[in-house]
C-alpha cells in the first residue's frame, strides 16, 4: 500500500547516489566494497521487479488494511507526536517477528530467500527485494496496528522509513558505529552477521531499526573479527538466472510436497525450518550450528592438550 508521502520513493535518488559513491570509493581504494557485474544486475533487477509485484498486489493489501482500520479499537491521530513515537516501536516489533518467521519457516523463507542470495554485501544488495512477499501474506502481521487505530497511511509511512533505514546498513564500508549506537540500533556490523552463511552466524539479528529485539529475544550474535562474514545462502545458487532467484525455493517446496508420504511430511516441507526433511538427511540451521559447535569444541579440546 502506498501513502501519499512515500519515504521509499523519495529515497530512490539517494539510493542511486549512495551506490555510485560506494562503487567510486571502492574503486579508489578508500572503502571496502566488492561489486560483481551480474550479481549487481540481479540485485537491481530484483528491486525493480519487487516494486512492480508490490503494485500488483497493493490494491488487495490496501483494501484489507482499510477494512481492519474501519473496525479499529481506537482512533489514533496522525498529527500527534506521541503516536509517531509509539508507532516507531510498535512497527519495529512486527518487523522483527516477520523477519524471524521469514528465516525460520520455509513457506516464508521461500519469499525472502532471494534477498539473501547475493554472495556480496553492498548497497545494491539492499535493493534485492522479494517479488512474492505479498503472496506469502507477511503483510498480515502489520494489520493489528491498524486494528489498534493507527491510520493505514501512518503505518505505511513508518514501514517505508524502516525500509529506507535498512538500506545504509547493507555495506562493508562501515566497520563499527559508536558503542552506544551498536547497542541500540541495527548497524552494518549487526546486519553483516544476518547476511552471513557461516554456521556460527546463521539465524541471527533479525532487527529492522532497533537491535534491542534480538537482544531481548535471544537472537543477537555479534560480528567477531576472527571470523569474517561469508555472504549468501548455505547452498549458494548455481547461476545468475533472475527467475531462478525469485522462484527456486517455491519450486523446491512444490517438488518436496509432491513426493511427501504423509500430511505430516507435507506440513514439515512447507512450514518446517528451511532444510527440514523427514529423515534428517538435509541440514537445518540448527543442525549446522550444532555441527559447528561440535567442531569448535573439538578444536578447543585439541588445543588444550
Amino acid at each position: 500500500m502506498k501513502a501519499a508521502f512515500d519515504p521509499v520513493q523519495m529515497a530512490i535518488p539517494f539510493f542511486v547516489l549512495a551506490i555510485i559513491l560506494e562503487i567510486a570509493l571502492a574503486r579508489l581504494g578508500k572503502a571496502k566494497a566488492n561489486y560483481e557485474t551480474r550479481d549487481t544486475a540481479t540485485s537491481l533487477a530484483m528491486g525493480l521487479g519487487s516494486t512492480i509485484a508490490g503494485a500488483l498486489l497493493g490494491g488487495v493489501i490496501f483494501a484489507a488494511t482499510l477494512w481492519v482500520y474501519e473496525h479499529r479499537l481506537f482512533t489514533i491521530p496522525m498529527t500527534a507526536v506521541w503516536a509517531w513515537v509509539v508507532l516507531f516501536f510498535a512497527e519495529d516489533l512486527p518487523y522483527y517477528g516477520f523477519h524471524r518467521l521469514a528465516h525460520e519457516r520455509r513457506f516464508w523463507w521461500a519469499s525472502h530467500v532471494n534477498h539473501h542470495t547475493s554472495t556480496h554485501y553492498n548497497l545494491s544488495t539492499a535493493l534485492r527485494q522479494t517479488w512474492t512477499g505479498g503472496v506469502a501474506g507477511t503483510w498480515l502481521l502489520w494489520l493489528p496496528l491498524s486494528f489498534l487505530g493507527f491510520p493505514p497511511a501512518m503505518v505505511a509511512i513508518q514501514k517505508g522509513i524502516s525500509l529506507v533505514y535498512q538500506f545504509w546498513i547493507h555495506t562493508e564500508a562501515v566497520k563499527r558505529m559508536p558503542r552506544w549506537f551498536e547497542a541500540v540500533f541495527n548497524t552494518p556490523s549487526h546486519h553483516r552477521v544476518h547476511h552471513a552463511r557461516n554456521a556460527r552466524y546463521l539465524d541471527a539479528n533479525y532487527a529492522g531499526i532497533l537491535i534491542i529485539w534480538d537482544r531481548m529475544f535471544g537472537t543477537f550474535i555479534p560480528e567477531v573479527d576472527e571470523e569474517p562474514c561469508r555472504y549468501g545462502t548455505v547452498k549458494n545458487l548455481g547461476n545468475f538466472n533472475l527467475l531462478h532467484n525469485v522462484f527456486h525455493e517455491w519450486v523446491g517446496i512444490g517438488r518436496d510436497v509432491l513426493v511427501a508420504k504423509s500430511p505430516r511430511e507435507v506440513l514439515g516441507y512447507m512450514f518446517g525450518p528451511p532444510g527440514w526433511s523427514p529423515d534428517g538427511s538435509r541440514d537445518t540451521s540448527h543442525m549446522l550450528k550444532a555441527k559447528w559447535r561440535a567442531r569448535v569444541g573439538g578444536q578447543a579440546a585439541e588445543s588444550d592438550r
Binding site: I23, A26, E36, T37, T40, A41, L44
Partner: peptide, 15 residues
C-alpha cells in the same frame, strides 16, 4: 539500473 551495472563493471571491483 543499466547505468549502475555499467559503472560496477567499469570499476572492476569484483573479488
Amino acid at each position: 539500473i543499466s547505468a549502475l551495472v555499467g559503472l560496477a563493471a567499469w570499476a572492476r571491483i569484483a573479488r
